[in-house]
Amino acid sequence: MKEILLLALISLGWIFNYSHRMAVPALAPLIREDLGIGNAEIGLLMTSLLLPYALIQVPAGYLGDRFGRKKMVVLSIIGYSLSSALIFVARDYWELVGIRALYGFFAGLYYAPATALISEIFKNRKGSALGIFMIGPPIGSGITPLIVVPIALTFSWRTSFLVLSLMSTMVGILLLLTIKEDWKSVGRVSFSIPRGVILLSIANFLGMSAFFAVLTFLVSFLVDKGMSVEKAGLAFSLLSTFGILGSILGGFVYDRIGKRSVLLAYLLNSLFTFLILVNQNILILVLLGLAIYSVGGIVTAYTAEKSRKDNLGVVMGFVNMMGFFGATVGPYVVGVMIDSLGYSNALLFVPISYLLAATLIFLDEKLH
């Protein structure tokens, strides 16, 4: 029962971790108008948080292994909540960039300790448990427009971040007060990175670059195709809603067919992201939601299989770091491409990146 409660609270913290970061794409049209900026600058707002987020991954995994993973998770929640609240007092674009970078640092302390802790506790059921944990991205992304857009239209877009911060702070306090025991799996921690995770890490770089390009510009792409901001926000929420099911199913699929599910997930994402550029059909959007959010739990479980007990957190952090280097590059590069090529041409970057990731996983299976 204690393990289930821990999984529930850590998953909730992961939901808000994503909700804070995805508030910018949901509010992008309003932020652009208020600050007088373009798509490249919106992409840089994602890059500004994702770069420190990526850099802190390996240290976060090590510190969690060494000093206690639950402690790092609580520190991350409180830190990212207070940092994001500072957006309420930001008055120009570069202040906003700096605050998002601070948020990225604290948000980056979360993933490696949390996934290492879940993998160690649930062991042979880690795929299913991590699939549940990875509902954080689709739920966090899905509920964000429903929370922040009405607040932004009623008060201001800055107020939306303050409300999110109050909500996530409560999760950190609950985790601190209700879970007294701290799990610590190893006494001696290794900083080693096995060669067997290199191709997986590069594939994760490409996949996360594509994933965050979609999340950053989907609303703006749909608006460009003629949707209102409100309808585009609801479409984004639909994608994320079915992503919840996709995340859970992905974890269960991994427990049953193992590493083959990684190749399958990347191929499906390449197909559906291409199709959504051609036709913004609801069915395609649903299928994309199932596929695009399945990757997280699958890749995380596969990473755990490639790790040892003494370097679990470090390897989790390394693979996620590589992924978020990709996430750092993707939104900015695609934003620049959109400003010069238009949405449809620029976003071809996404299915091509997923296809390259699938190719690397195919090679990884052949070599290992």
Score class of each variant (00 low, 15 high):
D65C: 13
R21E: 10
V163M: 08
Y293C: 03
G131E: 03
L277R: 09
V171D: 02
V350S: 02
W183K: 14
L102F: 10
P331H: 02
S237Y: 14
V315Q: 00
L86N: 12
F236S: 09
K2S: 08
R100E: 05
Y332F: 15
L347C: 00
S84N: 14
S192F: 08
T273W: 06
K306G: 12
A152I: 03
A116W: 05
H368K: 12
I10L: 13
L9S: 06
V149Q: 07
V186M: 11
E230H: 13
F191T: 14
V186Q: 10
L263G: 13
F325W: 11
M316R: 00
A301E: 03
I352G: 07
W94A: 04
S76A: 15
L30K: 03
V189H: 07
Y266N: 06
N281R: 01
A112L: 07
K225I: 12
D364C: 09
I118W: 12
L222Y: 00
M134Q: 13
S237W: 05
L177S: 10
I352Y: 12
L290A: 02
I193M: 07
T300A: 15
G246H: 01
L176Y: 13
L277M: 06
G246M: 09
P194V: 08
P25I: 09
L162I: 13
V319S: 06
G43H: 00
M72V: 13
G297K: 05
V97E: 06
R125I: 11
P59E: 12
L271C: 11
Q280E: 15
G43I: 03
I338T: 01
M46A: 02
G142N: 14
I78P: 14
S190E: 04
V149P: 08
I244D: 07
V149G: 09
G172R: 08
R69V: 01
G233K: 00
V329L: 10
L86A: 14
F133Y: 04
S237D: 09
L288Y: 09
